[in-house]
Amino acid sequence: MAVYLKGFLIACQGIPTTIWVSLVAIVIGAGFGLVVALCNQSANKPLHYIAKVYVDVVRGTPMLVQALVMAYGVPQLLQSMGSGFKWPDLVIPAIIVCGCNSAAYMSEVIRSGIQAVDKGQMEAARSLGMSKGMAMKLIIIPQAIRIILPAFCNEFVTLIKETSVLGYVGVVEILRHGQLWNSSSFETFPAYIGVAIAYMILTIPLSKIINGYERKMSKKEAAR
């Protein structure tokens, strides 16, 4: 039993890194995702297409590949062009990749949220003399956020799990801690079970909170 506890505790050493990488990435993802969503819905054709291509490229490739390109590919390319570029810390490309990856998924979530707000809301806001931007900010986006909050939290849960690929680009997060201990102790089963439990204590409470919120919201809807 002690060996399982050890495996779990070692995996837990990666929790702070996993959490803060995920948190920074989801903040980037939400902010950048909103920009992508607004570009996607924009009447400006070039902006619309750039956003579409961006979403297709990110969703069409595995995050591990994106991480390898950003962490190792980009420095090699720049170096071959004669620059001395090197990431000061590999956690930087890791966060960039997670944030940009999440932005593509978030933009779709945000877009569906904005479209789910009744069209009369925009008309009512405009009829009070609000500009389109002001109506978005004061009327549409606050309502869209309520609609997308569960999907947003689900994206956060997904992101926490996805950060497990970052071990391959030099970030020592939960999985990497387990792997390192495994290679020195050969306690393979306890090591990876410990890793699994460490992820679960992050993701399962979050999922429960989301479910609770969704139940509360659907009750509210039913009460209307």
Partner: peptide, 30 residues
């Protein structure tokens, strides 16, 4: 439009705002 009010068939009140805020959001922001 600030001089031309509109009342809709389906009300279109802002559901995330209280009744009072529905009445103040226009004057305050516009």
């Amino acid at each position: 439009r600030t001089k031309m009010g509109m009342v809709f068939q389906s009300f279109n009140l802002f559901p995330h705002k209280s009744v009072l805020e529905n009445l103040t959001i226009g004057p305050m922001n516009v």
